[in-house]
Simulated assay, not measured.
Amino acid sequence: MPLDALDATGLTVRHGDVLAVDDLDLRIGRGETVALLGPNGAGKSTTVSAVLGLLRPAAGSVRVLGRAPADAVRAGCVGAMLQHGGLPGEARVGEVLHLVRRSYGRAGLAGAWPLDDLVATTGIGGLLGRDVDALSGGQRQRVLLALALAGQPPLLLLDEPTSAMDVEGRRAFWATMRDLAARGTTVVFATHHLEEADAVADRVVVMAGGRVVADGPSAGLRSAVAGRTVRFSAPDGATFDRVPGVTGASRLGGTVALATTDVEATLRGLLADGVPLADLEVRGASLEDAVLSLVGGVR
């Protein structure tokens, strides 16, 4: 039976008097793509740091591919992009990449990812001769990804990886992640971009107060949230609070959004009132709705 990529049992981490991670159990199998979601202070980044062996837990254990975290990192089993990761200054991208790739030639480690494939996969072909200090935020993230992948790690940990990227860069980044997953890489990422998690992750783990409050496919989390949203164009001044089934109403520009527990009753009520329902759209709960519902009462 293959070893899990990650197995945390009873993981507890304190930062002084603050309980950052509280008796967390988390098991992630080989080849999964898992999103860690939750508000600031939920414990996501602390969990990633514990998996990398960057801090000592107060209690519990973490195993990475059957090894202690520090041993797994030394063996080249883990690649990471941290939220506050940096690059050495006064160097060119190609020089930094060459230095990191050379470290994977040591005895006992898998060889470095072939340079041409690594450069093409991470989209840094035009950056190798550029000074590190001249990179944009999105370019730095792509270079950091190349460094994280240089040793062909079976487990990749990402902490807010697309925070400095524009829309096009984020789309290209997640296309790369899907390609890596297809090759068998386990990808675990913490993000505040819930639409990315919804589109990319096989599994969503929601954290709050240092604990896991939900764990499953995105569709399952969304389906657990009652109610739907009816959106349509309406003139200013119109009110809809008394429409059957409506539990809340909001307006953005000329678009009205009605939260409802009974879509059919709401639509019948709107039609009976003569509302034209231009640009009508009915949606189930989003992943954002589900996460807000799950973490709302957690302290």
Rank of each mutant, 00 (worst) to 15 (best):
A150W: 01
L149S: 04
L287T: 12
A107I: 05
L99W: 09
V167M: 12
T33K: 04
L145W: 09
A175N: 13
D273N: 10
Q139W: 01
A265E: 10
A20I: 08
D133F: 08
L26A: 07
P276E: 05
E281Y: 01
E288S: 10
G126S: 11
T191H: 03
A5E: 04
L292G: 03
D17H: 13
M177F: 07
R178E: 14
G60Q: 04
V78L: 04
G184M: 02
L52Y: 05
R251W: 07
V187Y: 03
G220R: 15
V204R: 07
G237W: 03
Q139M: 12
L158V: 07
D236G: 12
G137A: 06
G38E: 13
G284R: 07
S293E: 15
D25R: 09
V73Y: 09
V62T: 02
R14M: 10
L109S: 08
S293I: 00
L267D: 01
G129D: 14
G253N: 08
D198R: 06
A285D: 06
A182G: 12
S218K: 09
A197W: 07
A5Q: 08
E264W: 00
H15C: 11
R14N: 12
E196M: 06
A5F: 06
T261W: 05
A208C: 08
V256I: 11
G16I: 10
E168P: 00
G151C: 12
A164G: 01
D289G: 00
R268A: 14
T121D: 14
R170G: 10
L157Y: 00
A219R: 15
G138N: 03
G245L: 02
E195A: 15
A172E: 14
R178G: 15
H84L: 06
L194Y: 13
L118H: 11
D71N: 06
L292I: 12
T247M: 11
V212F: 03
L36T: 04
G169D: 04
T176F: 13
A278C: 04
W113E: 09
E196S: 05
A190R: 06
G86I: 01
G38W: 12
A249P: 00
D273H: 08
R27K: 15
L155I: 05
R27C: 14
V298N: 06
G38T: 13
R228N: 11
Q141Y: 04
L267R: 00
A134Y: 01
L147M: 09
A278H: 15
D4C: 10
R74S: 10
R27E: 09
L54T: 11
A75D: 13
A224V: 03
G10N: 08
V225K: 02
D198I: 06
G169A: 14
A249N: 03
R106C: 00
A199G: 08
T260G: 13
G209M: 10
L87H: 09
A290H: 08
S49R: 15
A148T: 06
I28K: 07
E32P: 02
V188M: 05
V13F: 09
